[in-house]
Amino acid sequence: MPSLKALRAMLALHYGISLQYRAQSVLWMINGTVPLIMMLIWLQLAEDGPIGGYDATTFAQYFLFMFLARQSTPTWVIYLMDRGVKNGELSPHLLRPMHPMWHYASEHWGELMARLPIILPMVAIGIAIADAWSWSLLAHLPAFVLGLMMAWLINFAMHVTVGLIAFWSDNALGYDTVIYQLYIMLGGVVVPVELFPQTVQSILAWTPFPYVLDFPVRVMIGRIEGIDVLAGFGIQLFWIVALGAFFTWGWRKSLKRYAAAGA
């Protein structure tokens, strides 16, 4: 565990790096527009009346905050781990008195700090255009932010766990696509999880996927309230701990196979 001072220094460094790569932020934005495209479709479909309890305003809110959630949680850590193991780029991080994951995580956070100033206005403009503002949103904001932070951790833990494959096989990137698909498709980016058939929903409830994107978004738009919010946070916490423990165990096993290629 690095000191706060170390965390701040790493964040500043990665924030600086991300500012130099604005173009990459554009890429993320383009790839992350799926929720916006889906919003157009669902708004059009809801013209004849609400669908499964979602009217046009709900759809607009759902997908705009889904866009925000999607843009706050992406991770390319499997790519970093794959490269780290293959080319030995992990070595300098292993030599530091700090888990390499802190380095990777701060890279993501620094990038996020550079991206949010572009994303937040886009969401605000979207809400204005879709006329989807309501004062109750403000009341849900703290829970939304907390839910998003936990969601980030779940998603990161999920990805680094899959990333361990890099130590065992020559190309972990194929599995990056697998986990990415699940994160997007089952997270509610295309179809709100509440609109899934009941059986599918009850199976999904046993997986971490709805707790990454759908849960915080539903908290924000007020479709989960009261004690259910707390229960949701509890499940999020469970996934963070469970995935974190599994990762820690796997990391120790995997590191024995590290060949420190290069030089």
């Binding site: 220094a9 790493m10 460094l13 600086g16 790096i17 030599l95 008195p97 700090m98």
Partner: peptide, 28 residues
């Protein structure tokens, strides 16, 4: 400490000073 050829412990896009400051913080 270990110094290996061109192993990058320096952040490619930033200045050496930036990386040194990070090292200072990481190593207390």
């Amino acid at each position: 400490t270990m110094v290996m050829g061109q192993k990058q412990q320096l952040a490619w896009d930033m200045t050496p000073s930036d990386s040194f400051l990070v090292n200072q913080a990481i190593y207390d």
